[in-house]
Structure formats: C-alpha cells, structure tokens
C-alpha cells in the first residue's frame, strides 16, 4: 500500500505491576501497521535490584527490552521513534533513532517551521494543521546535518497523512490490552 516503502518503528518501554515490558510497532508512512512485537514482562529479582541499583530501569529498558525487540524485527526500519528519552542511550543501533513528543503549542504557525530548542532538540511544525512535535536526537545535530534532513523529510512526509505521534498511542493501547489479557 505504500508508495515509498518507508518503514518507521515506534517503541515504548514501560514499567507495570507485572514487570518491565516493551513493544514496537513498525508502520509505513501512512501509519498502517506492518509488524508488532512485544516482550513479556520482566520482573527483576531482589538480587538484580541490588546489583543494578539506580541503573536497573535503564538496563532493563535499553539493554534488555529494546535490544531484544530490535533483534526480532523482521522489517528493516528507516527510523525509530521512541517515547522515552532513556532509550536514546541505546548504542548498538544501526538505524537512526529519535525521541518524539507532542507539544502543547497550537498557535497555527506556518507549515514546516522548525525551531531549535537545544543542540539536540528541535520543534517541528510539520504541517499547517498539526500540533508541533518535539524531536530529540541522540546527539547534537545542526539543520544542515544529514540525519536532521532525513528526520525532517520523514516527519514532513508522514505528517501529510497522520499525526506522527499517534502510532505511539496505539502501541501504548496495545500494551494495555496485553497486560489486561495477562491479568485474566
């Protein structure tokens, strides 16, 4: 169904009463789902809590859950969009990854306006009618950077059809369904 075969991975990792778990949705640029993988909850033991201390959450989310999710994907994604900034610390990734979040700004700015917030963070107004999104990169990037241009183009292309943060909501809802099913 896709004209460009663009594949975007949306990742959420979360902590529930069942343990830590994560899910990834691969969609095309119109938000149509192509693949969905999730992990079973991991409940760290007392020993692991002691051993990893404050870094337990990061270890589980990044090194365990994200690493496993990416390892089982059958689709090669062009860009990973994550909800949790902690996931940007994943360093084995060959695919580009950004954190994406909706802003509360809704002032009707012109289309495709980009505002630099920090060296690694920008606000994209990707279409005239959309609410701007905040995009955080793994590292500092300039507007002339190749990665910046790639992300900018993808966001603009997808933004014509969907609210680009919406698939993350779908992943979240899917996780809730999975948890509810596990609780049955």
């Amino acid at each position: 169904m896709s004209d460009t075969n663009l594949k975007i991975g949306y990742v959420i990792t979360t902590s529930t009463k069942l343990g830590y778990l994560g899910a990834i949705l691969v969609s095309d640029e119109k938000g149509f789902p192509l693949e969905f993988q999730y992990t079973d909850p991991i409940l760290p033991t007392k020993l692991q809590k002691v051993l990893y201390g404050n870094s337990l959450e990061k270890y589980l989310k990044v090194d365990v859950i994200l690493d496993n999710l990416l390892g089982v994907l059958s689709n090669k994604v062009d860009l990973l969009m994550v909800k949790d900034e902690q996931l940007l610390e994943y360093n084995k990734l060959k695919t580009d990854m950004v954190r994406i979040a909706q802003t509360s700004i809704n002032d009707g700015k012109n289309s495709a306006e980009i505002e630099k917030i920090k060296d690694d963070e920008y606000i994209f107004q990707y279409s005239k009618t959309s609410v701007p999104v905040r995009i955080t990169f793994k590292q500092n990037v300039s507007e002339q950077n190749e990665l910046f241009e790639k992300v900018s183009n993808i966001v603009k292309q997808m933004g014509n059809y969907i609210d680009i943060t919406e698939p993350l909501e779908r992943v979240q809802k899917s996780i809730e369904i999975i948890i509810a099913k596990d609780n049955e």
Binding site: F36, D40, I42, V64
Partner: peptide, 17 residues
Amino acid sequence: ELSPYTKKFPITKVLQI
C-alpha cells in the same frame, strides 16, 4: 543475561485498536 521472550502481536488485532 536476563532476557525476555518476545512475541508477535497479530496485525489484525493492531488494526482493531
């Protein structure tokens, strides 16, 4: 290392969300 099982969620179910 600690490693979770990964499972596939059917696309048909994702479409129902």
